[in-house]
Amino acid sequence: MTNLLYFSTVSAIIMFFCGLWSFVSYHKHLLSSLLSLEFMMLGVFWLLVENSTNIGSEVYFGLFFLTMAVCEGALGLALLVLIVRIHGNDYFKSFNMLEC
């Protein structure tokens, strides 16, 4: 059981750092940045749920965190649709900061 717990914790940490690496290195499109942020949030959620079940605390905090992550994802997709409608693409280089 201890090996499974260790493997699950290491997997969640690797998941978070893979999302962080993809966020830092692949920042050409807004969609890839949003997907890597969501991948990082899933890694944090996995670690949070795993630790809360080991401690024996309530699971409702994990559900609240998952709800906030889903709301963050929906907000990011809404902004992506708005940016694609205004600019025509989601390249970061095509955004002009003076057009607000």
Rank of each mutant, 00 (worst) to 15 (best):
S52T: 12
L63N: 09
E99V: 08
L4P: 00
L42D: 01
C18G: 10
L34N: 04
S11D: 05
S94P: 00
V49E: 09
E99R: 11
M68C: 12
F16D: 03
L35P: 01
T2D: 13
G43N: 02
G76P: 03
E50V: 00
E58G: 15
L82Q: 09
K93I: 10
Y26P: 01
G88P: 10
V49H: 09
Y6W: 11
V70R: 12
L37R: 01
F39N: 02
V24T: 13
N54Y: 14
Y60G: 02
I83M: 15
F45H: 01
N89A: 13
A69L: 09
G43W: 01
F45W: 04
L34D: 00
F61E: 03
V24E: 03
F95D: 01
G56L: 03
M40N: 02
M97R: 08
V59M: 14
E99N: 13
E50K: 05
L4C: 07
T9H: 13
F61S: 06
S8N: 09
L98Q: 12
F65Y: 15
M97F: 11
E38S: 06
L37A: 14
N3I: 11
G62Y: 02
M15E: 06
I86L: 10
F7L: 15
S22F: 07
M41D: 04
F64V: 00
F65R: 06
F7A: 14
M40E: 04
I86C: 07
L48R: 01
D90T: 05
I13M: 15
N3F: 10
S36N: 04
M68H: 05
V81Y: 11
G43R: 01
L31M: 05
F92L: 13
F65H: 10
L63K: 05
L31P: 00
G73P: 01
T2N: 12
S11I: 06
F39D: 00
S33Y: 08
M41L: 11
L30N: 03
H87F: 13
V49D: 06
S32M: 07
N3C: 06
C100R: 14
L47Q: 09
T53F: 09
G73R: 09
L47E: 08
V70G: 08
F39L: 08
A69S: 15
S52K: 12
L34P: 00
A78D: 06
L35Y: 06
Y91C: 03
T53R: 04
